[in-house]
Amino acid sequence: MDWQALLLTLRLAAITTSLLLIAAIPLAFWIVFTRSRLRALVEAITTLPLLLPPTVLGFYLLVLLGPRTALGRAWIHLTGHPLAFSFVGLVVGSAIYSLPFAVQPIAAGFSAVDTALIEQARLLGAGRWRMLGELLLPLSLRSVITAAVLCFTHTVGEFGVVLMIGGDIPGSTRTLSISIFDQVQDFNYAAANRTALGLVVVSFTALAALYLLRGERAISVSTGVHRGE
């Protein structure tokens, strides 16, 4: 097992998931409740990474983050090193690649909240942030958990984008899936098997935890609380 790659992968997935939730919750709120004509455009942009081949997305991100663009040059000016082939670049690429996995479940969760509840909250004076924090998020918690697990597992397992943007730098950009690729290239199938098994365990554990949480929440919502017996 490549422990260094495992830790780097878990770190990458945790940071990417956290950033995506912070961005996706307000973005999903806007998509569901806006009347702006830009909605269709924003929805298309957020869904695009789902359809693009990872190598295509990775290639454009590599170009965008490289020293040939204003963004890439500004980053180098600020930090002294390029965004591509760095852990931060990897986070940026992973976040963009997994964006639809965060936005779509959360937007679906918000859309499923009964309109009558939203109208009552408005009548009782709730503004947007209160509506989001005290009504939509608690009632869409399963969707948020789903989004988090999907983002995490998707980031853990990604290969094409990571390879294009980050390359294969041990301790910096070599994730588990790239480590497996290297081990196979070296005909070290035993090591590749152990690493692949590690990925399976991480993904299975995350999904099992998701279904467990969703199941428990479904039970608590359906039974209500404290009948005052």
Binding site: A116, L117, E119, L123, G125, V221
Partner: peptide, 24 residues
């Protein structure tokens, strides 16, 4: 004027057949 309970808001309550209590 937007719905709501503040001084600058509509200050109108509305109850229908569906109680629409916040379930959580």
């Amino acid at each position: 004027v937007a719905p709501g309970t503040g001084a600058a808001q509509r200050r109108i309550g509305f109850v229908t057949q569906q109680a629409a209590l916040f379930p959580h």
